[in-house]
Computed example of a mutant assay.
Amino acid sequence: MSLNGAGRPNSKRATWVAYYRLTRKHNFPTGLDVVFWPCTWGLIMSAYALRLSPRSLAIQLAAYFVGATLRHSAACIWNDMCDIEIDRKVASLGGAAILLAAHFIACLVILSYAGDAAFKWGLFCLCFLDPLYPLMKRWTDWPQLWLGFAMTWGLPVSWVSNFGEMNWYIVPVLLGGGVCWTIHYDTIYACQDRRDDIKAGVRSTAVLFGDWTRLILACFSACFVICLALAGGINHQGPLFFITVAGTAFHLAWQLIVVDLDDSSDCHRIFKVSSVSCWRSEPES
């Protein structure tokens, strides 16, 4: 981005481009997809249990897609603001806070249509899980664990939006699986910067796991697959669901076999295809 002597964009166009890039929408759908997929688990599995019409499900999926897009952008803006001492480009964007507030308000508006119970579940994530995540890499070696709850929280929200109440048998199992999946893909993502993070004192599971990363991620991936199968059994899903779960298992295994955890570009490549694992686990409605 071209800057003038005062450190500000030298044109209105450059300013708008900078704002746009701050929201990460130019990377669509990377990042957004892993926020959206857990929402679809709750929507599709609850629709299957309630026998909702395809039209009703399609409308809900579209609404959650918009909400996930806004939430992902808000989280990216907030993350950059928290990392201002590392990423100085945020300091040149005086409107970052206004942009964040606009996205947050839009998220609340969309969430308000999900019902009172779902609104409360969603508000917990927007006001607690999401804001604290950027700080976790300073406080703990397990920021990916916290991120797992944040990224998968669309699942309980979407489930409650259909049922009006929580299912304490299915949703916690799927939530746990989503957390394991997040640790899988975000640890691979974090391996891109592992050497720099060690020097900078940034904490992550990629740094924590070290040479054991591949083996430990295999365990988390197995837990993800087991949780999917268990939740499907509790929800009385049909054979197609379990076929897709098997596809998920093979895809996760392929990722761990082929990824070069010491090659930043390869880690990024595998991260970008990680959402395919989640797509393969989509149940029939």
Rank of each mutant, 00 (worst) to 15 (best):
D260Y: 04
T182P: 00
R214H: 07
C191Y: 00
A222C: 02
L252C: 07
W279F: 15
S56C: 04
D130M: 14
G178V: 08
A218Q: 12
C223Y: 03
I257M: 11
L215G: 01
T187S: 07
A6D: 15
H72L: 09
V109F: 12
Q192S: 03
R21C: 10
S158G: 10
P172E: 05
A114Q: 14
W279D: 00
A218D: 02
A200T: 12
E165C: 08
L145R: 05
A200R: 14
S161F: 10
I77M: 11
I86Y: 11
I270Q: 13
T244F: 11
T140N: 05
N4R: 09
S46A: 15
V35Y: 07
A249T: 10
P172L: 02
I198G: 01
S221P: 04
N235K: 07
I170A: 13
V90D: 03
W121F: 14
A200G: 03
D87P: 02
S112T: 03
S2K: 15
L70I: 11
G232K: 05
A74N: 01
S112W: 13
V90G: 04
I198V: 14
I86L: 15
V66D: 02
C223E: 02
C125F: 01
N10S: 14
V207L: 06
S221M: 03
G201P: 02
G7R: 08
S53F: 05
G94S: 04
V160Q: 02
C180A: 12
A253P: 05
H251V: 02
Y133C: 13
L208W: 10
L22W: 05
S265H: 12
G67D: 02
L61D: 04
L240F: 10
D266P: 04
L111A: 13
F220M: 03
S275V: 12
L100T: 03
I77P: 02
T248I: 01
A150M: 11
S161H: 10
A102Q: 01
G122N: 08
G7L: 07
D262W: 04
R51A: 13
K120P: 00
K137A: 04
F65Q: 06
E284A: 12
S73A: 15
R88V: 09
L230K: 00
V173T: 15
Y48N: 14
R71A: 13
L208T: 03
M166K: 01
C127D: 03
F149Y: 14
I198Y: 05
K25C: 12
F128Y: 07
I86F: 13
L230I: 11
L100A: 09
T152K: 07
F224T: 06
R269C: 06
V109T: 08
W146M: 06
N27E: 14
